[in-house]
Structures are given as C-alpha cells and as structure tokens.
C-alpha cells in the first residue's frame, strides 16, 4: 500500500513538476504573479489529447502543446507589457479566454484517451511495465528539462531575466528592456505548464476541462515545499527543490486521501498548505495576546 502510494506520488510528482518549474520561473525568478497556468496546463492536455486521438505521434502532439502554451504565455505578456494591464489581471484574462478555447479544442468537457498510442504505450512497447515506462519516461523528461532550465538561467539571456525579477531599474541601466524579459519568461513558463498538462493527460488517460483549476496554487505549494526542504538558493538546487517539492506535495495529497478526506476536499487542503508558510502574521501579534492575558491576570 505504502509502496503504491510512493510510486504514485513519484509518477504524478514528476508529471506536475514541469508546471511547478514554470511557476518557479514566474513567481520566484521573474517576481511576476502569473495565473495563466490555470489555462495553459489544461490547454496542453487538450491539445495533446486531441492530436493523439487524431493519430498524431505523441511526441509531436506534446511539441505542439508546448508551442501553444508558449503562445498563451506570450499573450499574457502582451496584455501586461503592451496594453498595460496589471499582471494578475492579465493572467486571469488569458486563463478565462483559454477555458473557451480548451473546450473548442476538446469538443466536449472530457476527452478520454482509451486504447490510444501515447508516450507511455510507446515506452511500454520497448518491453517495460506500465509503471516502469511511466517512471522512466517522466524521469528522463524532467531531468532533461531541468538541465536545459538550469543552463538557460546561466546564459547571458537567462541572467538578464533573473536580474529583471531582482532589480528592473538596474537591468534597464545595463541595456535590457525588462518588458521583453517578462514576455520571454511568461512564454517559457506556460510552455512548461502545457507540456506538464500533456504528460498528465497521457498518464491519467484523459483530458478534462476542469483539470487546470487551482493549478497555480498546486505549483506554488510545490515551490514552497521545495524551498523548505532545500534551503540552498542557487538555481541548480532551487530547481531540484521544486521537483522534490512537487513529488512531496503529491505524497501529502495522497496521505490526506488516506486520512479520509474526500477528493473534492483536496483543493481546500492545498490552499491551507500554501497559507501556512506564506502567512506573515503581524509582528507583536502573539505578544499582544500575551499582554492582554497578563493584564487580566493582574486585574484578576
């Protein structure tokens, strides 16, 4: 039972890790609260499912998902930098628009991938069990993406992107337009989210219009859990932390299920999981309570 729970968490954690890396890129590296993910993740699932059903090679379907995810991110970037719409709102607008687009892509609200070729069946055909195929392919994809991601953030362009999130005035004075970096980062992050959606669709065997709801919070939870496990702030460590965070998050969620929470309660559990580390109670809040208690004691 525990073994099942562990492998399940590992498989799902890896599949969602790419989306969490995207959230890390926007929220942490760029310092931009991007909510597009709630739409670009199911977009990736919808596009890849639809294409796979139409007979497209799964790898090509996944590539297409990435490209469309990037475009969703670029749209948010455009809304924010060119049309001057606030960052949070720009993401919500794209996410809302994507809901309709995703329905169009799928043609209905749930698209099953029964008996379809998928990345997983292709690997299985090489002689692996379903579980081995899943772990192997997801692991390889995540490692590959992590290496590329880390490398990118150490290139000239990647450094400029990180500096944009850190100190936009300074990077402007060195010749970089922060707005371009924001657009670039949003594109990459949502490309990752879409790829993640494509993996999850193939893993669970269907794409669903509701599968993106709360995705941003899932991503944030993974990032935060990762940060509390791996304290090293260096990029290579931080991204390792995000991946581990995504896996641990899945483990916590399946533990919650085992404790008797119903699947529909999980969003609430996730929300609480995020509130606890993010909350910064007003300083002196506890002291204030203590003071009142003392006074009452004296009075009494």
């Amino acid at each position: 039972m525990l073994v099942n729970m562990l492998t399940g968490s590992l498989e799902q954690g890896l599949a969602y890790a790419l989306m969490a890396l995207g959230v890390f890129l926007t929220f942490r590296v760029l310092n931009f609260p991007d909510l597009t993910v709630d739409g670009s993740f199911p977009l990736g699932a919808a596009v890849s499912a639809r294409l796979i059903i139409a007979g497209t090679h799964p790898l090509l379907a996944m590539l297409t998902a990435i490209i469309l995810g990037v475009m969703a991110g670029l749209l948010t970037g455009f809304l924010h930098t060119r049309l001057k719409i606030a960052g949070l709102l720009a993401g919500i607008i794209t996410m809302t628009a994507l809901y309709s687009i995703n329905l169009r892509v799928m043609g209905r609200s749930n698209l099953p991938l029964l008996r379809q070729n998928s990345l997983l069946t292709i690997v299985q055909d090489l002689g692996f069990s379903r579980m081995a195929a899943t772990l192997l392919s997801f692991f390889l994809i995540v490692i590959l993406i992590k290496i590329l991601f880390d490398f990118f953030l150490h290139t000239e362009l990647g450094l400029a992107l990180r500096a944009t999130g850190n100190n936009p005035r300074m990077i402007t004075s060195l010749g970089v337009a922060p707005q371009k970096m924001i657009i670039l980062g949003l594109g990459l992050a949502n490309g990752l989210a879409a790829l993640s959606g494509a993996l999850v669709a193939q893993y669970q065997g269907f794409a669903d219009i509701g599968m993106g709801i709360g995705m941003i919070i899932v991503g944030l939870a993974s990032v935060i859990i990762g940060e509390s496990i791996i304290r090293n702030k260096r990029i290579v460590w931080a991204t390792k932390g995000v991946i581990i965070g995504s896996i641990v998050y899945r483990f916590l969620i399946s533990s919650a299920l085992r404790l008797g929470f119903s699947p529909t309660d999980l969003k609430l559990v996730t929300a609480i999981l995020v509130i606890i580390p993010l909350a910064r109670p007003r300083r002196g809040w506890l002291e204030g309570i203590k003071k009142i208690a003392m006074k009452e004691k004296e009075a009494g």
Partner: peptide, 15 residues
C-alpha cells in the same frame, strides 16, 4: 557578467 555585455544583444551563451 550582466554589466560586461552592457548594451549588447544577450545570447544563449554561458554568461
């Protein structure tokens, strides 16, 4: 490294 390429196009080279 950010300052070294001041005003230049930033590429996908190791910085």
């Amino acid at each position: 490294a950010l300052a070294k390429v001041r005003g230049q196009k930033r590429r996908l080279n190791r910085a």
